[in-house]
Design a protein around this nucleic acid. Structure first.
Lengths: 219, 219
DNA sequence: GTTGTAATTTAGACAAGTCTAAAAATATTT
DNA sequence: AAATATTTTTAGACTTGTCTAAATTACAAC
């Protein structure tokens, strides 16, 4: 139905929209896909011809309803496979991304339906990201960034934004994971770092780069 | 490392070698890959440049040691995924081929190692075909074709040669499956059909096309 | 052995997706 | 508002894998 490249473009446009809540730019898409801006322009024209994106020269790009459905389906597959890799095959959460990037392009509705059932219909992936339903809806979430959370209140970590190996391994080292409980003890104005307490009770300083990549929920 | 096309060519050349025990011909490869003979010639030259096949114009092609290893690895992945689809996701054995054709190209040694462990190191796929080991050895098998088996002796079905939906569904209809016990009661010279008895005791006539696509072992 | 047929290869073309280099449009700075 | 910098697009080329049509080689029958 759609090529590997087309699917990757749609996915990236979708992710950029979620992250920036505005039209995706040629340059950002190129950076995400490790390609050149000129290649992106070429592909955007093709996707526009197929009515998968709304594209106007120099104005960035957004997904049409049809493009959005395809993108959500890819994201659904990606996240279900991540659950499989972690829960069933016992991968660590920092090892699954590259493999899931490949598995998400396998074309078989039956496969995904059965995988979903086998995994007991999970709603979140190992990084806390919601899994789109079969009909393409994403449950909304009232999580906030840890950097925006209040001091002295008890939160639960719900999701990590950055899925890079280095970030996830950093979190592992400090026993920070999905569903960890966390309280901000103090906020340092100077560099926007925060001092937090986890369930082990030992104070820990987190940089602003860390706290803006972690989502939490008030308990 | 290798492209999808390259991997498919190597796999088909390997399968043709197993099936015909001689060099694969351009035309047969083309038929298997649903492509044209001229395309095959082009690709064989490229594979020869990469030292994956021994190719001489007009003389057919065989795999080098390097090509053989890659092909066996693809076959290993294909068959492990088939076991997963049938044993874990409860696919029927006639539904797994197309999906496994996609899954076999996923590149991750870790994934296959962990899948292998999760499946408890299976040695045969759902059609009875042996699963190559990690270091590329295929256990040899003393199975014979049902069409070559003796009358009145008790055999066990070990493998089916044709993996097509229609053949597998035909076998399902008559409750013929891997490990079924079977005895040939009579052989009909006229059309080479045979009359067999399964565990239900009811005599059943099998055409020569069927009996040449089923392997059995003497019990 | 010659002849006809089938298999194979060559030559040239095409589509998808990418690239570089240059041009055009937009944004930012002064 | 003009000058500069950045982003985006265009034009033309390249790679991979495929195709058609024509030429060549191998094989089988007589």
């Amino acid at each position: 139905m759609f090529s590997l490249s087309e699917e990757n473009y749609l996915k990236v446009i979708h992710n950029l929209k979620i992250a920036n809540s505005k039209n995706a730019s040629t340059t950002l898409i190129a950076k995400e896909l490790q390609t050149k801006a000129s290649s992106v322009t070429d592909m955007l024209k093709k996707l526009a011809d197929k009515k998968l994106v709304n594209y106007q020269k120099y104005k960035g790009v957004s997904l049409t309803k049809k493009g959005e459905n395809i993108a959500l389906n890819i994201v659904r597959k990606h996240r279900l496979w991540e659950v499989f890799l972690v829960d069933t095959l016992h991968f660590n959460w920092d090892e699954v991304h590259e493999v899931a990037e490949q598995l998400e392009h396998i074309k078989s509705d039956q496969l995904i339906d059965r995988l979903d059932a086998f995994l007991k219909y999970p709603t979140k992936d190992p990084h806390g990201d919601p899994i789109p339903t079969k009909n393409g809806t994403l449950p909304l979430d009232n999580s906030i960034l840890l950097s925006n959370a209040d001091t002295q209140k008890l939160y639960k970590i719900s999701c990590v934004k950055d899925n890079s190996k280095s970030f996830l391994q950093y979190l592992d080292k400090h026993a920070i994971t999905i569903n960890s409980e966390i309280t901000i003890i103090d906020k340092i104005d100077f560099d926007s770092s925060i001092i937090v307490k986890l369930s082990n009770g030992i104070p820990l300083t987190l940089s602003s780069k860390v706290s803006t990549n972690v989502f939490v929920n008030l308990i």
